[in-house]
Design a protein around this nucleic acid. Structure first.
Lengths: 335, 335
DNA sequence: TTATACACTGGGAACGTTCCCAGTGTCGTA
DNA sequence: TACGACACTGGGAACGTTCCCAGTGTATAA
């Protein structure tokens, strides 16, 4: 009924519980004979050590938290896979939670992580306060490049570079009237993208893209079509804050019979798998999502295991442009 | 340095630790005065109870496991969201792990769940043995409708119905030469789909679809195009085991200049979000993924909390056909 | 021979909760 | 007044590990 414990094994193997514990932890100072006897007993009885008890004593539960906004956004499963792969290799389990872009949920989840005494946490923060994040009291790695969180380790993609690549591509194709959809108004990642736009356009401030705000979702992009069509002169290209927005926009444009890239070029950011399948296939800026997850997990576990005492560092992964069908040179007929 | 514990709170509030514990657990037999003092002390000092210690004593850690093959398959994030929503509402956290379709990983993960003393587990099994699943020793809910696991609670979609709907649709459009891609050879879910095909075709066993095996992935569908083209007479329609296969097939057909649905009709199963975005948009059988996840979580937590003592039950969620652009009546020119 | 080092061993305390139980006080009723 | 019922209280044992430490034995060096 009750699962076996270390004493049962000790008795069955005719040794003390300390010796069993040493074997479980792979320590020395155990005679080959005792070790063999213990190991075979464990196998025979199918004993699985209780990590809850061990966690209580060691203050290490071999589990990290991963808090993301929304696992159904295809950007995040890739991050998750990267995190899990490394966590797994290094002996950690991953507790996954979705904040649903809500501040309250984010703070609740961090409090939960604290109660669960997780060894560390990787979070893609949306609104959460520094105070709440500090209260966690263990190592934290932030996903994203937001200055507000600079006191924590972070891994993100180079937003400035992504936006720069996308805009340069559109400029090279002759696009001057551009609409930018950097994300929802008032969110940090939106501001990052806007800032990147200004930086990229320093040389020609007269040709700044128009800005329109929308959610980071398919329907956000879909709804933005109306805004696009109300502008005069009508933009010939759209720079979308992520691929989901771009895909929503493609759907909206198709519905209205506007051809892409014939009448309007569309470029996304992220390079989710969908981007290579939608119609037309999407020109976008590739982010190394899997690698970002792996890096985050490695940074976190290095901290947890004390391999790093240095000040917090931010790793910016580099990005590259993937040219597909959704962009083309600005045409003569555009109306 | 060291986090607060229940004794610190007891001392600060001038009561015994038992009383604090009672407040934390929302029990009676605490005077309003003491309760108020304790609650304000907790808030003031920012105390978060240690769920590891509590878990050790209560043998309940308020965490369930979710083991799926691959979170990057868009079918699973939806399941995950459903599970998490319910788990969250009912006070449980979710430990997520990917088996990567590997038997060894599956067994490792179940052993991990056992060591972590998770309260229960939801698993979409691929190959895992009953023995390994039984060894877990806590409640298990299986995702899928596979007979082998009938000793556990299960929630799945009605495969027979899905296949029946898809085939009926193709028949109604006049398709007789059909290729079916039920999944990878030798996997139970593949066999389920095949069985469903035979059942659906009982009335006209002479017109059984051709069968070709492939992975449940985009590239599985992509590679299957070659097999499709080698058949004579060439099938006019393809029934794909899931939407990813269908989308891979669409990509492969487009590359070879074969029009869909002009020359070949394609139908999928799952209705992932991608299906409404790809080109042409995909006719498919809708599965209530989110609801399946919610149901699984509710069944599991009911078991954990002992609300159900009844024999294992299987819930089959019903499905429905979503007709989009990828299917049409069989044409005159098909070569 | 003796001292020192070190591999090996097992018992007990500690981790932070929850639960059991025994003890106090108050109230209503016989 | 005496008594049971019951709200409230706090101390100690228990959950299953890990770590500390003291103790044994053996080999090596002086």
């Amino acid at each position: 009924m009750k699962p076996l414990n270390i004493n049962d094994i000790a008795k069955a193997a005719g040794v003390g519980k300390s010796t069993v514990s040493r074997v479980l932890q792979g320590q020395n100072h155990v005679s080959p004979d005792a070790r063999a006897r213990i190991e075979s007993t464990i196998r025979e009885l199918g004993y699985q050590p209780n990590m809850v008890a061990s966690g209580l004593r060691k203050r290490r539960i071999q589990t990290i938290g991963l808090i993301i906004p929304d696992i159904s956004n295809p950007f995040f499963p890739e991050i998750t896979l990267g995190v899990q792969q490394v966590a797994d290799e290094r002996g950690y389990a991953v507790l996954l939670a979705n904040s649903g872009w809500s501040n309250d949920r984010e703070e609740d989840l961090v409090a939960l992580a604290q109660r669960q005494r997780l060894d560390g946490m990787i979070i893609n923060p949306v609104h959460i306060s520094l105070a709440a994040l500090r209260a966690f009291g263990h190592s934290v790695v932030v996903i994203g490049t937001r200055a507000a969180y600079r006191e924590f380790d972070a891994v993100g993609s180079n937003t400035a570079e992504s936006v720069q690549l996308a805009l340069a591509h559109l400029h090279a194709l002759g696009h001057i009237h551009i609409l930018a959809l950097p994300g929802p108004r008032g969110q940090d990642s939106t501001r990052n993208r806007e800032a990147a736009i200004y930086t990229a356009m320093q040389a020609r401030p007269d040709k700044l893209p128009q800005i329109h705000y929308c959610e980071f979702t398919k329907s956000g992009g879909y709804d933005a079509v109306a805004a696009l069509l109300s502008l005069t002169p009508r933009p010939t290209a759209v720079l979308c804050g992520n691929d989901l927005i771009a895909i929503g926009m493609l759907a909206g444009l198709r519905e209205r019979g506007i051809t892409v890239p014939g009448q309007i070029s569309v470029v996304g950011i992220d390079d989710i798998e969908l981007a290579s399948v939608c119609c037309p296939t999407l020109t976008t800026v590739h982010k190394p999502k899997r690698e970002m997850g792996m890096t985050a997990a490695n940074m976190l576990i290095d901290r947890i295991e004390g391999n790093i005492q240095s000040p917090p560092q931010m790793k910016k992964m580099s990005t590259h442009l993937v040219i597909r069908e959704s962009t083309a040179a600005v045409g003569i007929s555009s109306g």
